[in-house]
Each structure stands twice: as structure tokens, then as C-alpha cells.
Design a protein around this nucleic acid. Structure first.
Lengths: 270, 270
DNA sequence: TCAAAAGTGTTGTATATACACCCATGG
DNA sequence: CCATGGGTGTATATACAACACTTTTGA
């Protein structure tokens, strides 16, 4: 995708519809079907400091030139949406395909409002990805990544931020999805490095949910869920600065959380 | 969609790609984008007797002529996927647009494997819909519905049943999604008539999950969740045959279930 | 020796489960 | 009067939230 700019229907321009429109009622030309452009859009999240960030790219071309947008681009003729999403992600972040293939990618939903792209009919399959805080920031690596930046989701979601297309809506959907996913799936570990402390895992939950959690109860719940995390057997220590060294854990084999780890008091007594 | 037959890319035939393929690396013609056909597929569920059924349509044309498939069809040039899904649903079931507009439709996921349709590139947005056991069976109403039938999901999911395209996969995904949805959303009521008894609601859960539930505990959980159901104030009685008349309830304003109503012993102690 | 972070223990309350039991109706 | 399904009560076990407490490190 590179030069065309990110976002839906990047630098492309409408192309005449080759065969117009099948009839709606009975009996239309079976040779006809309306063609669409299909793209992927990615909401890539990470936790930096104590804030949830999303990866955005500054658009080079019209429409929305200069505005920020979610990374993404067209499907190639023989690519599935997920394959295209991984390819785009590798291009935009500068990560290697091996790393990207191991990442957790989740299909969010497909956005297909007729006027979501002012130029033409574009249907976009949106994905969410969760990545650990990358040692080297994505920007500055050369190529596409030069226009990429991590932005706190709070800022990016604000209407004033002016995300291109319907990416504000996509981002809001993705954010709320990530919040719920933490409740009933194990993928909070996707935000963590390969080995992590329970404190770091708790910080992920607290950042995404924007709530404080009770540490003793949190560790009990996590350790009581079989397969969520497993202790790193060898010397288990690593320090974030002061304080007692913490034991290290790895993601376990489980993918879903039974029972779920619910957010506290989400409007109800629980 | 009518005559072209249901399912992905119904009766249509490949159309030459007008502008071939943008480059993958840097610098390609921004005028170019690969066109795709976009369809919707619907997994429409209902509870009949004590069995979960899905609406299927027998294909009239190749490929997979004579095989069963999920209802669906092309997006019109200015339709969103959801609008198309509702239109197709109305056409295939013979229900009025007013009824269909009130139904609960849920986007499942988008299927985009390059060879999922043997003729051409078709990207399909799949939806699930939950409908009450319709007083008049959908088949026999004339039009598309003549080829429609309710099939128990157990049969339809079996590989030997030979669903067209990747509809077996879609149906399996949809089924498992419906099972989880009942845990944390209120939409079990979508399977029920506008006014229903708690016994009927419990039967929905038992049918979809294929488990027995404790009646007293079930009613307590349901009634303890604010906004899940609300009692019909007037004379509250209706009999399914013998036994004490049951109170009637309506769906409440809530959409999510906090705390969730978890399936018993899904491999764990809970 | 103090602050900070990790980790353990305890306790009151809320919730869930598994029943036993009563009510109203049709046959 | 009995079978069938609706509806209520309750004892026990369990889980969870809150918070006090100990441990181990850096400064």
C-alpha cells in the first residue's frame, strides 16, 4: 500500500462501474453484479505508560489529506481480509512478517455505508490488533512508518481530532470491543512482552478499563483461571525499579476466561 | 434477489477485472483497485419444538445447484450490508419490511477467502438473525420462500449435509456465536413471541445450549437482572396445555446482561 | 530505615446451587 | 385425584470484595 496513503480506498479514485446494477425485483441479468472496492482498516492498540494508545497514520492524499486515519488498504486480488490486514500491519509498522503473523488479530466488523468514502463505494473490513509496547517506536523506521504515530485513544476519539472517513466510529467500536474482550478472553497478555509480571498484567486491565483493581484479588482470579498464565519456572524475577522483585509469567494455553473477569460496578451492584 | 438464487454470488458469473491489481510495494497506479463482488449471507435461527432450526434455501443454479445454502445475495450499489441483509430476509421469508426492520440482526463476520466462490472473487458479510417460531411456516408463501425450509442445525451442520460454498463454516460460527450471545445479552427474548412465559424463555436457553437448567434458579436470575424482562401488567395468564397458567412477560429495555447468565459447567467448575 | 512494590491471610457479605415444597389447571 | 407445569422458600457451599499484614528490594 505504501505511497497511496493509508485508510480506506487510499489514493485510488473512482473507476466506472463496469456492469451496472442487477434489478432488485424479479428477473435481472445474471451476468451483472455491482463491483465494490474492498479494504481493511486496522485499530492497533498498545499500552504505553498508563494510557491506551492507537496507531494512526497521517494521510498524504485527498480526501482528508493531512488528517489522521487508521492504517489500512486494499485487498489484493487473491488475498483474504486477514492476510491483507497482516500485510498492511507489517508495512505500516515496519515489523517483520514473522512477528506480525504471531500477533493476535481480531475481526471487528465490516463498514459498508454507501457514502463512507466520498469518492466511491468502499466496503471495509475492520480489525483490532493488540501489541506490546514496542521497544522502538514505529515511527522513524523509514518507509510508511514515517507517517505513523501512537496517539492516546482519548485524544483520537474526540470529535475535534477529526479522524478521516468513519474511522472515529471504527475506533470507538474497536475500543469498546477491546474492553469487553478483556472480560472474557485471555488476550490481555497480548499487550505484554513475552514474559511479564502480574503487576504489568494488572496495569493493562486498569489502563484499558480505566479503573483501579484490588491487587490481591486480581492475582487470585488470574491464578485461579487454569491456562491463563503459567509461571516461568527458572529464576523468577525482574524489577521495574524499587520494590520486591516479581515472579514472571508467560501466556498460558487458554483463550477464554471461565468464569469471566468482570469490570467492577459497571452501572450495577456487582 | 429472487431469481438468481440465494447464497453468495447467486446466479452471477465472473466479470473481467477492469483495472488489474495495484502494486504491492511502493509506487503503483493510484487509479487502480481490484473490484470485488460483495454479498450478504444470513443465518436465521428459530426454536421449534425443542430444537434449534436454521433457515435454508435450495439452490436453483450452478454451482452447488440442488444443494442447500444460507439465504443471501448481492449488495445493491447504494445499500449498506445491513440494509441488504434486511431486504434479502424479507424476500426470502415473505415477511413484511416492517416486521423485518424490527428484528434483531447481528453482524457475524466477513468471509473473504479468495476461493470461497468457485466463479469469482466474492466477499460476504454474514449476519445472524433470531426470529420467533413463525405461526405460518415460511415455505409455501410463494416467491422465493417456496424453496426455503427450516432445518435443525444439528443436521445442517453435519458435513454430509453438504451446504454450499463455505456456508457450513458460517453456520457453525453463527451457532456458537448465538450460544455465547445468550450468556451476556438479552436477546434470548428475540426467539420468543412478543409476550412469553418464563418457561418459554427457559426452553430457549435449554434448546440453544442443549442443557437442562434449574427452574427456580433460572427465574430468579432473570428477574434479578433489571430490564431483562418486564411483567405484563394486566391479567397474566396463558396456558400451554395442562398445568398452572403462567405469568406473561415482555422484553425489557436492557440489551446486555450484568452479571452474565453463564452456561453450567462448561468444562470448568462453575 | 523508609518507601515502594510483591505477595499472603482473613473475614463478612453476596451469590449460586440443589433441593423441598405449595399452587392451579386439565384430563 | 393425579399428572403437569408454574411459582416460592431455604440451607449449604462457594465466591468475591475489602483490607490488614508480611516480604524484599532500592535509595
Amino acid at each position: 500500500m505504501s505511497d497511496t496513503g493509508p485508510g480506506s480506498a487510499s489514493g485510488a479514485v473512482p473507476v466506472p462501474v463496469p456492469v451496472p446494477v442487477p434489478g432488485h425485483g424479479h428477473g435481472y441479468d445474471p451476468q451483472a453484479f455491482p463491483p465494490f472496492a474492498v479494504t481493511v482498516d486496522l485499530a492497533v492498540f498498545t499500552v504505553r505508560g498508563a494510557t491506551l494508545h492507537v496507531l494512526l497514520i497521517r494521510r498524504a492524499q485527498e480526501p482528508y489529506a493531512g488528517a489522521w486515519a487508521l492504517p489500512g488498504g486494499f485487498l489484493l486480488p487473491r488475498e483474504s481480509a486477514e492476510t491483507a490486514a497482516r500485510r498492511e500491519l507489517a508495512e505500516e509498522t515496519g515489523l517483520s512478517m514473522e512477528v506480525v503473523d504471531a500477533l493476535h488479530l481480531d475481526q471487528l466488523r465490516t463498514y459498508s455505508e454507501p457514502d463512507r468514502d466520498p469518492r466511491m463505494r468502499v466496503v471495509s473490513v475492520a480489525f483490532t490488533a493488540l501489541v506490546p509496547d514496542l521497544p522502538e517506536p514505529v515511527a522513524g523506521g523509514g518507509g510508511d512508518a514515517d507517517r505513523a504515530r501512537w496517539v492516546p485513544v482519548g485524544e483520537a476519539c474526540a470529535p475535534a481530532f477529526g479522524l478521516a472517513f468513519d474511522h472515529g466510529e471504527i475506533l470507538a467500536d474497536a475500543r469498546s470491543r477491546v474492553g469487553s474482550k478483556l472480560e472474557y478472553s485471555c488476550l490481555a497478555t497480548a499487550f505484554c512482552p513475552p514474559e511479564f509480571t502480574l503487576g504489568e498484567l494488572q496495569a493493562v486491565y486498569e489502563t484499558v478499563w480505566d479503573t483501579a483493581l484490588d491487587r490481591p484479588n486480581f492475582r487470585r482470579k488470574v491464578l485461579a483461571t487454569p491456562g491463563f498464565v503459567e509461571a516461568v519456572p527458572g529464576a523468577a524475577r525482574l524489577t521495574g525499579g524499587r520494590g520486591k522483585p516479581a515472579a514472571l509469567y508467560r501466556p498460558g494455553p487458554a483463550t477464554t476466561l471461565h468464569p469471566p473477569l468482570l469490570r467492577p460496578t459497571e452501572g450495577h451492584t456487582r
